[in-house]
Simulated assay, not measured.
Amino acid sequence: MDRAELVELLSPDGLRLLDSLPPYESSVDVVRLVADLRKAGHGPGLVAAVLTQSKLRAKARTKFGEFADRMLFTEAGLEQATRLRVAALHAGRFTGAGLHSIADLGSGIGGDAMAMAAMDLAVTAVDADEVTATIASFNLAPFPGAQVLHADAESVDLAGFDGVWLDPARRTAGHANTSRLSDPGDYSPSLDFAFGLGARLPTGIKLGPGHDRGQIPAEAEAQWVSVDGQLVEMALWFGPLARSGIRRSALVLSSAGSSELTGPDDSDDVAVGPLGEYLYEPDGSVIRARLIGDLARSQGARMLSEGIAYLTSDELTQTPFATAFRVLEVLPADEKKLRQALQARRIGTLEIKKRGVDVDPAALRTRLRPKGDQSGTIVLTRVAGARAALLVERLRP
């Protein structure tokens, strides 16, 4: 979206047209809809803009729920935006620490700032991109305690703010078709700037969940967050925003609620032991936080193999921090024999999971040629260092 399209979209006629569109569905005859809108006298630029927004609003419901229907987006802004449920937890850190005036540096379309404003924090959202800052202004318009600055985050005078939130841009500039930046030195604002703020102000920083753990400052609390099984972020908390005695945290959010596993540091793994009746696949947040050992001890479980994030036990203990499987059989690891074993069991619908082995599950599934009226899951991994294929049954919580 360029500046001219945004100006047209933000006109009273543009917003009325957007809100008048039926809910976006992929099955809609877009060509006919475009023709109808053009026949009604709407210009091609406005038609393209409102249809793009309609599509983005539908996509945004997974992050923003019903609020998405009254928001504006760019494709890149939506992709990088914090889910509203997670943003509310960010805002809760600031309110819990007794802070009030927050600078949201690198605010994007304003998702985190919306959550802060909804909790009566006075938030100033800052973004260096003019179109993105304008969209953030629209999204934050319902909140009297929020304002937006079109400015470079590192140039903002922070006098008068008692807390800072940063979501550094980790992709190339633009509103669509951006690519991930591989060098943290290219983030905007830079990590050096962000960590410098953390040394002198209550600061929270959102980073990708796979960010290099070696760059985590010793004084920060690092929290990895997963939502419905998807690892979505690592947040670093400094000063009073970091909890006493906690430096590693795995937060699991699902429709069942929230659960958290915490530790003062990375936890030591438990010993490797024999394959039991049950297999556990730790949530990605637990793996990234390196709290697998603490999870194993709470489960009475043991490591399946050195350095591989699977646990095993003889008794089932359900946990929100891992997916549990019942081990049905140990199948041959040899591909030809494995194919024969699956065919003998009439397994035609096959899920392949793997860890600790170099294999492409999609390519392997093609070579195994599963056929039959049964479904099954195999886990390709190592048991006490030896390659193994486990036929397992997923257990629902």
Rank of each mutant, 00 (worst) to 15 (best):
L197Y: 07
R200K: 13
R200V: 14
T203M: 11
G204A: 15
I205N: 04
I205R: 04
K206R: 13
K206S: 11
L207C: 12
G208A: 15
G210R: 09
H211N: 00
H211E: 02
H211L: 00
D212Q: 04
R213F: 02
G214A: 02
G214I: 00
Q215R: 15
I216K: 00
P217G: 04
P217I: 06
P217W: 02
P217L: 03
A218M: 06
E219A: 14
A220Y: 01
A222D: 06
A222N: 07
A222L: 06
Q223N: 08
Q223I: 14
W224L: 10
W224Q: 07
W224K: 09
V225K: 06
V227K: 09
D228H: 10
G229F: 03
E233F: 02
A235P: 01
A235Y: 01
W237L: 13
W237K: 05
W237T: 05
W237E: 06
G239L: 09
L241I: 04
L241T: 03
A242P: 07
A242L: 08
R243V: 12
S244E: 12
G245A: 04
I246C: 08
R247T: 12
R247C: 07
R248G: 06
A250W: 02
A250R: 01
V252Y: 06
S254I: 10
S255E: 15
A256C: 08
S259H: 13
E260I: 14
E260P: 13
E260L: 14
L261A: 08
T262R: 14
